[in-house]
């Protein structure tokens, strides 16, 4: 019988002498977690270490911390947070509220999958406005059905990182972009700040938080899949807090849109 093994290049454990199922020490990329890291490392440094297998620089850590604050609570109108709140309002399990937030916030509209696509775009187009222009056009073509094999994900319906329903760039997005650009050790955020209005003209849409986040993740050196994971993870605190609030407030004070359903009316 082969011994089942878990392969990892960032996590290791020493078994305790008394019980091989209990660790005496855990190591993250070589660092002793509970002896060395616990008193010395910040939460975002630890996050970075787990994903990148190396300690962040001071600048990287500062940027990731600021990004974490910017993403932590998209607010109760955001679909992912509303999903968590809907679970809370109905008195569902607390776990289901976070599952709901992740499920809803995973998508192509302002969600984690959009961030992954936008991050891929940065990898492909870099800081070349002409490449972005043709790239955006490709996305529009894709929307019209020019895609490869059918998948669980539908093709993204808008330029990744931009809000198709927005009319102007929100002040909160501009503030985030400005601050993150100022502290970033890399150049993608700064380039985005410089060319934001050009890109908004190309896409007929304002920059969204997903676009800022993607540029920040690229500046931090994350791959698209890492960016996708981190975007979901970093937006959970707000979802959790709002879900708890609605859990206590109850369903009667949560929007039900009593007169909102127009049954039998085609979706225009």
């Amino acid at each position: 019988m082969t011994k089942p093994e878990i392969h990892s290049d960032f996590w290791d454990e020493d078994p305790s002498p008394e019980n091989p199922f209990t660790p005496s020490a855990c190591y993250c990329s070589g660092y002793n977690v509970y002896d060395d890291l616990l008193p010395n490392i910040s939460w975002v440094e630890y996050l970075y270490l787990m994903f990148m297998k190396e300690a962040p620089t001071k600048q990287q850590s500062t940027l990731l911390n600021a990004l974490s604050v910017a993403l932590a609570n998209p607010g109760p109108r955001d679909n992912s947070v509303q999903a968590a709140m809907s679970a809370g309002a109905g008195g569902s399990t607390l776990a289901s509220s976070l599952i709901a937030a992740i499920g809803v916030g995973a998508g192509n509209l302002g969600g984690a999958h959009e961030v992954a696509i936008a991050t891929s775009c940065w990898q492909k187009f870099g800081t070349n406005l002409l490449l972005w222009q043709s790239g955006f056009n490709d996305f529009i073509k894709q929307k019209d059905g020019n895609t490869s094999r059918a998948d669980v994900w539908l093709p993204i319906e808008h330029a990744p990182g931009f809000d198709p329903n927005g009319t102007h760039c929100a002040e909160t997005i501009i503030q985030t972009l400005n601050y993150l650009s100022d502290i970033s050790p890399n150049n993608h955020l700064a380039w985005l700040r410089e060319h934001r209005t050009d890109m908004e003209k190309m896409t007929n849409s304002p920059l969204a938080m997903s676009g800022v986040a993607a540029a920040a993740f690229v500046d931090l050196g994350f791959e698209p899949s890492q960016a996708e994971m981190l975007f979901m993870l970093l937006r959970l605190p707000g979802a959790a807090a709002h879900a708890l609030e609605q859990h206590e407030t109850g369903w009667k004070d949560f929007p039900f849109f009593s007169d909102g359903l127009q049954v039998g009316v085609p979706n225009s």
Partner: peptide, 22 residues
């Protein structure tokens, strides 16, 4: 359900090292 002992982890990462505060 199939509890796994610590030594089931096959580690292939960085060698043991000391954290240096920034």
């Amino acid at each position: 359900f199939f509890p796994m002992p610590c030594n089931a982890i096959r580690y292939s990462g960085k060698p043991r090292r000391q954290w240096k505060n920034m």
